[in-house]
Design a protein around this nucleic acid. Structure first.
Length: 1021
RNA sequence: GCCCUGGUGGUGAAAUUGGUAGACACGCAGGACUUAAAAUCCUGUGAUCAUUGCGAUCGUGCGGGUUCAAGUCCCGCCUGGGGCACCA
């Protein structure tokens, strides 16, 4: 009988669905086990082969635990709000709700095709009002709570108001440590509080609320008329179209996660997560102990606060650096420095934080003209502005100690500022002129007044004591973690249940008014202002009493920060989940997902969970007990450099250039190509994809983002560069003689691409000259239009990279069981690897052979004969190995072992019931359909998925003899079969008596003989 | 740049966590069956040398070190991948 997997699999999936075989019970005497997959975002490209890797692993565990007698909760749902759906809506005019619903339907189809044991009745969808009602409800709770540092717990804001009414904010003025809003918070008395206007009260409370409004920077793209995600910005220009991006400050919502920093850090110790994952979170939280120091400013009232972990180096301060965004910049800039400072700030603030941190080679900064006063020595210290200082970190200002900090050192070298060593190594002297910063946190203080002679450790303590005594600083613990920006200027997200009152106060809707549904819209185009498209719905926004609704929406992580709780009780309309359900399921026993969520989702979820715990809604402190990180299945990407040129009539043209040319030119960016239109070629021993003009034209029809590209191959041109601040471009021609042009020619690229922008005279001249140069360059190219060479890269699969491979075809060709086992066979789940189908045949052959064990001679037959020793050994080795390896998530070796066992049984033509039936249970988590089919053919009526997991008997595994590898000086020379019970001394004697030993000893006597029982014999000569 | 992670045959990988490197597969080569192909089955397959067999030497990204013994532990590099706060 043929192994007709398509028929078998479809039939059993239908049966399982009808029987609700995998439904979880909220009440059970069995121990509970909650297995969770990370929430997928239903992308338009459908499920790709990378998704199932983790899902198969979790499905195996869910089924395995069910075999072991657990009541298993294994749900699936969709993180359905998000940017891609909105972008698609802008492009096509189709409503995100429609496309999302279609995508979800497709995902469900695809997931069901793989035979996952999900309890589909518990499906959730974050964009469904019945779901986001509770997301909004949690937001309202966050808004209406503050964090009491004294008791380390969230408390209702009403209690804070009572405190203010009684005593003002005395004793509660340092309850906030993050954000900018609190900087304006002054001390006030109970009387002051009562006299505050609603607006003032609202502003004060914003300094305490766990959800609050503050200002933050966004990537504003004038040309697209919208705020861009970091992801959409590449090299300072928009990824779509290469338009300039400017950073703008907007009022936005934040979550005060920093209040939970200490608990988020401490509780990591209780989790069964990989060390690397915990390490990433620890680093993200970034606790550092040090001191806050205050520097007065000469002739000005301003005070600059800096945070430092090295107060011992305070006497080495030779400058102070402010972030370009610092509010003090305007105040401290002198008249003479004003234009220079403004130009610098303008330029620096448009660089992304990442770029500023990454770029350590180019040092930039500007002197404000003002001087700070050294808090101990009273010496004047110049105040600079530098973009290596980030506004969001610490206080947004640093004390420059060039001798002992690498970034400060580079800054001082570059601007010729004094470098004063104040710490020397304990057992050496520093060289006269420092070549590098001495940043080790050990040594002895020198040139440091009262700190001289102290070790670094002692000096840190001493410096803080002295600062506290003189009132110029104090001990402080700082966290790198920043409050979570919770606002997006988008349509497709949860609307904020927030009303801005006409009197300037801010309040949320009442809980019973939720959900605030996302209003219907059919025009998703950006408003052209930095705001959500919702702002266009003036009727919805403006309320009759003069108040306004919030128009921002919540970010992707809102809905995904608590979804695991909803699965416990998804239909509940009165609560996000019932007490009973929460108390029964408690937390997630096993969470499987990618490391890319290491610090985003996993930190926010932990924060929300702790908040809900503080409020008494959840019974556990942590949501995810055990975390397993699946590796990423990567895709092959084909990439090419694109040059976008503005012609004299201001139309743009895009060219793909030969990838070997190192080339930056006007708007230049890298673009992905669909590899199905590319050919693989080896050129000069390197692998490339190539694409012809014909293929490109075909591809452009399916992928509009490829646009009207032309292929050109440039000759004689090595390098063209534009500078990083994106204001002026410089074109450099290595072959400048031939071009008969000077080496560097400035061209204002920004303006070239913004024809409508009014330009001043100089800029216009530059446009003219650059256009001339351009045409000259283009005319001198030898242009080939037939073929482009694209580089091959391995990277994560995503729709935007056009490298998605989906599992559907494989399911049809080989069946879901083959796909499941093959993905596991690829290697350890936690390892990333590029997708290839090279080995899938082997797995499919295994399943056929396994099927054939039950179908000797073509018909289904099982023998009732007793198993012999060899068969029992094969079976029990398999039970042992597969049980242990499954427990350890080593699924690839499980598959190998199934193959070994099957090969052994095939060899002895075993079709005995007592051997094959337990194997069906072992196989069922991995290949559930074939196991179920054969189980039923064997005459059983219940599902194989609830059968008890077999237990191995050690007695069947014992061997009488062991083949000892005998090595000389660590090199294995021959093997020797000896009884396994033989003691080490007898083993040594037996080996020494062997004639082969004599041969290898060459007459010498051994210095030492090492015998490790049932492992190895090593003879040292 | 910072944090995390990987690197073993032509390919995916395995190695009881310091004890025979390459299990199990894919691919390839040869053979059987077949008119033929597919499917299936058998044999071989790290490299180099030696091939009449015995065999020998090298070999886990590179360079050092610890050890009777290193893919595994330590130090220093090179390199692929993921994340870096608005992709999800």
């Amino acid at each position: 009988m043929e192994y007709n997997f398509n028929e078998i699999e479809a039939r059993w999936r239908k049966q399982w669905e009808a029987d609700k075989t995998f439904a979880a019970q909220n009440h059970s005497d069995k121990p509970k086990y909650y297995v969770l997959d990370m929430f997928p975002y239903p992308s338009g490209a459908g499920l790709h082969v990378g998704h199932p890797l983790g899902y198969i692993a979790s499905d195996i565990m869910a089924r395995f635990k069910r075999h072991q007698g657990h009541n298993v909760l294994h749900p699936m749902g969709f993180d359905a709000f998000g940017l891609p759906a909105e972008q698609y809506a802008i492009q096509t005019g189709r409503h995100p709700a429609d496309t999302t619903a279609e995508n979800i339907a497709r995902y469900i189809d695809q997931l069901k095709n793989i035979g996952f044991a999900y309890d589909w009745d518990r499906q959730v969808n974050t964009s469904d009002p019945s779901y986001y009602r509770w997301t909004q409800w949690i937001f309202v709770k966050l808004f209406n709570h503050w964090y009491d540092k004294d008791i380390q717990k969230a408390r209702p804001i009403s209690e804070l108001i009572s405190i203010f009414e009684k005593q003002g904010n005395a004793g509660y003025d340092s309850m906030t440590i993050s954000g900018n809003v609190e900087q304006n918070l002054k001390s006030f008395s109970a009387e002051d509080w009562k006299a505050f206007t609603p607006k003032e009260k609202s502003e004060v409370l914003m300094c305490y609320r766990l959800a609050y409004q503050d200002f933050a920077w966004v990537n504003w793209c004038e040309a697209l008329g919208t705020v861009l995600a970091n992801d959409e910005v590449k090299d300072g220009v928009s990824e779509r179209g290469g338009h300039p991006v400017e950073r703008k400050q907007l009022a936005q919502w934040f979550l005060r996660i920093t209040m939970y920093a200490e608990r988020l850090l401490k509780d990591l110790d209780t989790l069964d997560w990989s060390d690397s994952m915990k390490e990433m979170q620890r680093h993200w939280i970034g606790k550092s102990e040090g001191a806050k120091m205050r520097f007065g400013v000469q002739d000005k009232g301003a005070v600059i606060e800096v945070f430092t972990t090295r107060p011992d180096t305070i006497f080495g301060v030779s400058f102070v650096v402010l972030a370009p965004e610092s509010e003090l910049v305007a105040e401290l800039t002198t008249e003479e420095q004003k234009s220079e400072v403004e130009a610098y700030v303008q330029q620096a603030k448009n660089r992304s934080e990442r770029e500023r941190q990454m770029d350590v080679k180019t040092v930039s900064g500007v002197f404000t003209g003002s001087y700070a006063v050294h808090p101990f020595s009273g010496e004047p210290i110049p105040i600079w502005i530098g973009d290596y200082v980030l506004a969001g970190y610490g206080t947004g200002a640093v004390m420059g100690v060039p001798a002992h900090d690498e970034r400060d050192f580079r800054f001082a070298k570059h601007f010729n500022l004094p470098i004063v060593p104040v710490v020397k190594p304990t057992d050496a002297e520093l060289s006269e002129v420092l070549e590098d910063a001495f940043s080790a946190k050990e040594g002895v203080c020198i040139n440091s007044d009262f700190l001289n002679g102290l070790t670094v450790k002692a000096a840190i303590t001493r410096a803080i004591e002295e600062a506290e005594k003189r009132g110029i600083g104090e001990r402080e613990i700082n966290y790198r973690l920043r409050d979570a920006n919770f606002s997006r200027q988008r349509y497709w997200g949860e609307p904020f249940p927030v009303i801005h009152r006409a009197d300037g106060s801010v309040e949320t809707l009442k809980e019973e008014e939720l959900p605030l549904e996302l209003p219907a819209m059919d025009d998703f185009k950006p408003t052209g202002r930095p705001e959500s498209p919702l702002a266009k719905l003036t009727e919805w926004v403006n309320l009759p009493d003069g108040s306004r609704r919030e128009t921002d929406t919540m970010p992707g992580f809102a809905g995904s920060s608590w979804y695991f709780l909803r699965y416990m009780d998804p239909e509940n309309n009165g609560e996000f989940a019932s007490k009973e359900a929460l108390n029964y399921w408690q937390d997630v026993d096993l969470y499987i997902g990618g490391t890319e969520h290491a610090v985003g989702h996993l930190l926010y979820s932990r924060f929300w969970h702790k908040f809900l715990y503080d409020l008494g809604y959840v019974p556990t402190v942590e949501p995810f007990k055990k975390l397993v990180n699946q590796g990423m299945i990567q895709g092959m990407s084909a990439k090419a450099k694109i040059v976008k040129i503005v012609n004299s009539d201001f139309t743009t043209e895009s060219y793909i250039v030969n990838s070997d040319i190192n080339f930056d030119f006007f708007h230049n960016y890298i673009i992905n190509f669909p590899i199905e239109y590319c050919n693989r070629e080896t050129i000069q021993n390197k692998e490339y994809f190539t694409i012809t003009t014909e293929d490109l034209n075909l591809a452009s029809k399916i992928y509009p983002q490829l646009g009207n590209l032309k292929i050109i191959d440039l000759e004689g041109l090595n390098k063209i560069i534009f500078n990083q601040n994106n204001v002026l471009n410089s074109i450099r021609m290595a072959n400048s003689d031939r071009m008969n042009k000077p080496e560097w020619i400035p061209a204002p690229v920004t303006n070239l691409n913004l024809p409508n922008q009014s330009n001043n005279a100089t800029t216009n001249n530059n446009i003219q000259s650059s256009k001339e140069i351009l045409s000259e360059i283009l005319n001198s190219y030898k242009v080939h239009e037939n073929k482009a060479i694209l580089t091959i890269e391995v990277e994560k699969m995503s729709k935007s990279k056009l490298n998605v491979v989906n599992p559907d075809d494989l399911c049809v060709k080989y069946g879901a069981d083959t796909l499941r086992m093959y993905e596991m066979f690829l290697g350890p789940v936690e390892q990333s690897k590029p997708w290839n189908t090279n080995g899938i045949e082997g797995v499919h052959r295994f399943l056929k052979r396994f099927w054939n064990l039950f179908h000797a001679g073509g018909t289904f037959t099982l023998s009732e004969e007793a198993a012999d020793k060899k068969e029992l050994k094969a079976l029990h080795t398999a039970i042992k190995k597969i049980s242990i390896d499954t427990e350890n998530f080593s699924f690839n070796t499980c598959v190998s072992h199934f193959m070994i066992c099957c090969n052994e049984l095939t060899e002895v033509k075993c079709n005995k019931r007592s051997v094959l039936e337990p194997l069906l249970v072992l196989l069922s988590p991995f290949a559930p359909h074939i196991a179920e089919e054969l189980w039923h053919k064997a005459g059983h009526s219940g599902s194989v998925s609830v059968q008890a997991w077999p237990v191995h008997n050690e007695a069947f595994l014992e061997e009488d003899s062991f083949s000892y590898p005998v090595s000389f000086n660590g090199k294995m020379r021959f093997q020797m079969e000896l009884p396994s019970t033989l003691d080490p001394k007898s083993v040594e004697e037996a080996v020494m008596a062997d004639e082969r030993t004599a041969k290898w000893l060459e007459g010498k006597s051994p210095k030492k003989v090492i015998v490790v029982p049932k492992k190895i014999v090593n003879i040292v000569i």
